[in-house]
Design a protein around this nucleic acid. Structure first.
Length: 274
DNA sequence: GGCCCATGTTCAT
DNA sequence: TGAACCTGGGCCT
């Protein structure tokens, strides 16, 4: 379930459980065995996120870089931990809690320089205080690429994934196939502000909810419905179903190897072949 | 048991 | 543009 909000929540959850304590580090599956051996027993000194990247700091300058990819999952529990299953890439155990990481794309020991390089290739993150949305606008406003593809490009905006991109475009009535250079500055400012709000809410509740109060099932007199991903949304994975606002059938199409969802009534497009 | 799918990214062609 | 990588759930036989 990894978009940026998941990773920021993960950083918070790790900080709460492990910060300032010596941590037992192991890799039952073996793929992080060397890193785990080096860190075992060290104190965790930092836990932070940038986009979908998680950084756990130990001592001075040892960082564990974690990226969940599409399949990665984290589970927390109380100590003592049960015997690990053979897919646990990384297990952390502190004074009162443990954490198991499975199926990540990345779990590696990195240097401060390598960490800096990762930050440098990521765009502004709506969940970080240091984010400058102007940097994203700089790229978007001179690009022929569709705004749907730009929102998913981590060099442009860090942390937005397939759910937030579909939902935020819907909420602003923006054609997903609109070239970035044709987006108005005011539209971008509103989209950014909305991402900040939606994603903060996502961290708080650890799920993605994007439906405005006036369009909730209760307000619209329809049956409550929550997507498999755990939240209430307008268009994500709702293809073929009626739009909560205008009633038209939500559409889907493949864009850059991912499924895009939009409402043809609320987000009319002139894109050829669509 | 097998097959498909998923909130992601990188590397080769 | 396609393949590869990482895992688990749902649905099929």
């Amino acid at each position: 379930m990894p978009e940026g909000h998941t990773i920021h929540r993960l950083a918070q959850d790790c900080a709460e459980r492990f910060l300032g304590s010596p941590v037992r580090v192991s890799s039952p599956q073996g793929k992080f065995a060397d890193g785990a051996a080096l860190l075992d027993g060290a104190e965790m000194t930092a836990a932070e996120a940038h986009g979908k990247h998680l950084f756990l700091g130990f001592r001075d300058g040892d960082w564990v870089h974690v990226h969940l990819g599409l399949f990665g999952k984290v589970a927390f529990g109380a100590v003592p931990p049960p015997p690990p299953t053979d897919t646990v890439r990384l297990r952390l155990a502190g004074p009162s809690a443990f954490m198991d990481l499975r199926g990540p794309t990345a779990c590696a020991l990195i240097t401060p320089g390598e960490k800096r390089a990762i930050h440098d290739r990521l765009g502004p993150d709506p969940l970080r205080e240091d984010a400058d949305p102007g940097l994203a606008w700089h790229r978007i406003s001179r690009s022929r690429t569709t705004v749907a593809a730009l929102l998913m490009d981590q060099k442009v905006v860090a942390g937005v994934g397939n759910v937030y991109r579909a939902e935020v475009l819907f909420r602003h009535g923006v054609d997903p196939y609109l070239p970035g250079r044709e987006l108005a500055r005011g539209q971008w400012d509103a989209i950014w502000a909305d991402l900040v709000e939606l994603m903060r809410e996502g961290v708080r509740h650890n799920r993605i909810d994007t439906v405005r109060p006036e369009h909730t099932p209760e307000a619209m007199g329809r049956a409550p419905r929550v997507d498999d991903h755990g939240g209430e949304v307008y268009v994500y994975r709702r293809h073929g179903q009626a739009c909560h606002v205008c009633g038209e059938a939500v559409r889907t199409a493949e864009l850059a190897a991912r499924n895009l969802f939009w409402c043809p009534g609320c987000q009319p497009t002139n894109a050829p072949g669509v």
